[in-house]
Structure formats: structure tokens, C-alpha cells
Design a protein around this nucleic acid. Structure first.
Lengths: 158, 158
DNA sequence: GCTTGACTCTCCCCCGACGGGAGGGTTCAT
DNA sequence: ATGAACCCTCCCGTCGGGGGAGAGTCAAGC
């Protein structure tokens, strides 16, 4: 059992959080400033490692840093109402769900386009045609509609 | 039919690409530099608007800018082999798929945690417990530790 | 003692794909 | 002539860090 504080490298290894990330978390105030050796090296006690693991788990679930800060506070508060935690988690799940749906819509559309593309040496390509012909433009409602139109609403990068 | 070139505001309105984005696309070389009026205002012809719509469609499908640049080139090349387009699209679909799976995994885990959280005024919370107890750490001793065993995994006091 | 290599420190720029806003010029209608 | 509505070019901020420069620190080996 490592009882004595460890350096940032070991902290990184045992928690799975990169050295860069640990320093970053400290810089933005997500974790408290580490104690330092005389030479200014950071030292981490069990407590801190525990927090880092907590953060890593939360990041693995896709929680944004800001929410993790709130989760950490609730974690430290032994009187917290579990509904507060559940609310944060549910809210995050809703966001995951929204992103999921967005990706699924993209995937569906793209899959339909890909399916109809021969993928040979000839230049005809329904993929390019669809990109060049936004929904509503040049209404070519022929016999079989090849796939979904690209929906409005923006790309994932927000 | 607007035959004469339009300003960036109108270009934005008719293509659905924000003014900021249009300038950005020009700055990074995704679209060619717009012609300018004497006063330096950008002017866009039908061609350019078409390209902007193409870009918007591609963005809606989640294509990264770099890939869109390649798609634009293929679009302009009437001799392109459709397999080149299909390859780009398929590669992007694979990325969409990977992200989808990642999100789904997160969602599954989170949903399971949320389901087991009472969400009331009491402090017991399997969500926090799970975040604090990464898989493989402190192997669970008995079946139902949700709610019992409050003092087992204490967060660092502070 | 001296060097070597492995750590660590701070600081700053980079990614994607723009958005916000400052500080200024232009155009058009009133 | 003046106000509103455009437009311009910069520069900074987003989110979660990664990469690397330049410098300091520490233990071990010779």
C-alpha cells in the first residue's frame, strides 16, 4: 500500500489520467493545488488519487468538466441528496441521447448515399449529386427516393 | 433568379452558411477568395453559392473540413471515379460508427447507474459510488450494496 | 566530482470549426 | 446629414487537453 504521497508521474500511472491532464485539472481548479516538494514537484496523496480516478471515470462517461466539478462536490458532501446527482446524470444522458440521434441521422443518410454509389471508375455519383443538390432544390422526386434528405440543423461541433 | 453576384449577407441567407463561416472557409482556403467591390466587400456568384451549399450539406453529414475539400475537388472533376468519393464517404461512416458506439456504451453505463439511483433526499447514490470505485477496484463483497454500507468508500473530507 | 538519463517545472502554441465582439469603413434611405 | 444596416479586419474564447521548448532536479554510475 502506497501511503506516502507520490509524484505526478506515478499519480498518472495509477489513475490513468495523463500528466498533462492532471496539471490542467489543477490549473482550472477542478482539483485542489497539489502540495509541493522543496523543489516544486507536485505530490499526491491517496485522497488526490481517488479524486483523479473519480474524474477519469466521469470523463469516460462523457461528463463535461464543469459537471464533474459539481459531481465532485456532491461526492464530498455526505449529506447530498441523491436526486441532485441523478439530475446531473440524467441531464447528461439527455445530451448523450441528442448527440446519438444526430449521429444516427447522419449515418442513415450517409449509408443510403453510399449504398447507391457504384464505387467504380465511372464518374456518376449519387453522393456528390446529393451534396450538390440540397433538399428542396431541383425536386427530382422520381419513382424511388434514394434515401433521406440531409436534415437542417448543424454539425456536431458545438 | 439572382444572376448578379450578391454580398456575403445574402450569400449566407441563401446558402444557410453563416457569414462568419463563409469568411472562415475563405481564410482556410476551402473556397476560393471572393471577388471584391471597390470598397472591399465580398461578392458571390451562383457558382460560389453552389459550393457553399455543397459545403453545408457535407457539414450536415458531419464531414470534417479537410474531407470536404477533397469532396469539392472530386465534385469539380467531371472525370472522377465514383469509387474515390465512395471511399471518402465510407471512411467517414466508419468514424461516425465508432463515435456512435462510444456514445452508446456511455449511455448504457449511465442508464444503468441512473436506474439504480433512488433520486430522493437520501445521500446514498450508486452513481457516485461507481464513479468513485472504478471497475476492478475494491471487488464487491455482496449483491446489494446500494444504500447499505454507507461508510465503506469515503470521499476525502475537505 | 561529473555526467547521464529520467523526471519535473512553467510557458506558450496547436487542434476543429467557427462565434463574439471591438473598432472602424461603406451604402442607402430619409 | 444622419442613422441604420451592412461590411471589413483583427483578436480572443470555446473544450479538453497534446506537443514541445527551455530549464531545473534527482538518483545512480563511473
Amino acid at each position: 500500500m502506497s501511503v506516502r504521497p507520490v509524484g505526478i508521474g506515478d499519480a498518472s500511472k495509477t489513475t490513468g489520467v495523463s500528466v498533462k491532464a492532471i496539471r490542467h485539472y489543477e490549473a482550472i481548479g477542478l482539483i485542489r493545488p497539489a502540495t509541493r516538494t522543496g523543489a516544486g514537484y507536485r505530490l499526491y496523496a491517496e485522497q488526490d488519487l481517488h479524486a483523479l480516478r473519480f474524474i477519469r471515470q466521469a470523463r469516460n462517461l462523457g461528463f463535461p468538466i464543469e459537471t464533474i466539478a459539481a459531481l465532485l462536490e456532491l461526492w464530498r458532501d455526505r449529506e447530498r441528496p441523491s436526486q441532485a446527482v441523478k439530475a446531473l446524470a440524467s441531464s447528461h444522458m439527455a445530451e448523450l441521447d441528442a448527440k446519438l440521434r444526430e449521429l444516427e441521422a447522419m449515418k442513415r443518410t450517409l449509408a443510403a448515399l453510399i449504398e447507391h454509389c457504384h464505387g467504380d471508375a465511372r464518374p456518376e455519383c449519387p453522393i456528390l449529386e446529393n451534396l450538390a443538390t440540397p433538399a428542396g432544390t431541383a425536386p427530382r422526386r422520381d419513382a424511388h427516393r434514394c434515401g433521406t434528405d440531409v436534415d437542417a440543423e448543424g454539425p456536431p461541433g458545438r
